[in-house]
């Protein structure tokens, strides 16, 4: 049974955007800090550190979850995806393209988390309607955009992903 004492720095292995990684951290290290400080994957942002703002949202085994409310050791063996896993080189995903086209970000602090939530939503539910999109977004705070452009971008991306008309 894995049993760690508080100052033990122990390896924890998980998949990060498809690649196996191992970080060495104490039990109290949060997944956010393991990603940002140990791996240097700073795309995942940290706002409130108590689950409210959504900035730190990543995908754990395909489902969006707060990285600030996970101990790094709880990610053992999980499949973690972060915003760094979306674009392939310079090629943005349709969702990212739509965010750009609709000015769905200003400071960008909330964006990584929102992208991970919407990306998971469209993989599970490619025809998600506006209500489902707004429901998913309700788990995120954005202090800049007023949300309307984000909803527009999401609708456009959904149409692209479904192969229908692009403009929502």
């Amino acid at each position: 049974m894995p049993r760690l004492t508080k100052d033990d720095v122990q390896p924890v292995g998980f998949k990060l955007n498809g690649r196996p990684v191992v970080v060495r951290v104490t039990p109290r290290t949060l997944l956010t800090d393991a990603l940002r400080h140990e791996i240097g994957a700073t795309g995942t942002h940290v706002g409130c550190e108590h689950g409210v703002c959504g900035a730190c949202t990543v995908q754990v085994d395909g489902e969006p979850a707060r990285a600030c409310l996970m101990l790094a050791h709880q990610a053992d063996g999980c499949d973690i995806r972060t915003v760094e896993g979306l674009a392939q080189g310079d090629a943005l995903t349709p969702l990212q393209e739509a965010f750009r086209a609709h000015f769905a970000l200003q400071c960008g602090f909330c964006t990584a988390g929102i992208l991970m939530t919407l990306d998971a939503l469209f993989s599970r539910q490619p025809d998600a309607d506006e209500d489902a999109i707004r429901e998913a977004l309700s788990g995120h705070l954005c202090r800049c955009t007023g949300y309307a452009p984000i909803v527009q971008a999401a609708l456009t991306a959904r149409n692209r992903i479904k192969g229908g008309p692009i403009d929502a």
């Binding site: 894995p2 049993r3 760690l4 508080k6 109290r28 050791h73």
Partner: peptide, 21 residues
């Protein structure tokens, strides 16, 4: 904001969890 240090037991069997508790 970081948690204060703690020991961590990732139980894979009920008896391990109950022993640790």
């Amino acid at each position: 904001m970081k948690p204060a240090p703690f020991d961590y037991v990732a139980a894979t069997e009920m008896s391990e969890a109950l022993d640790a508790l």
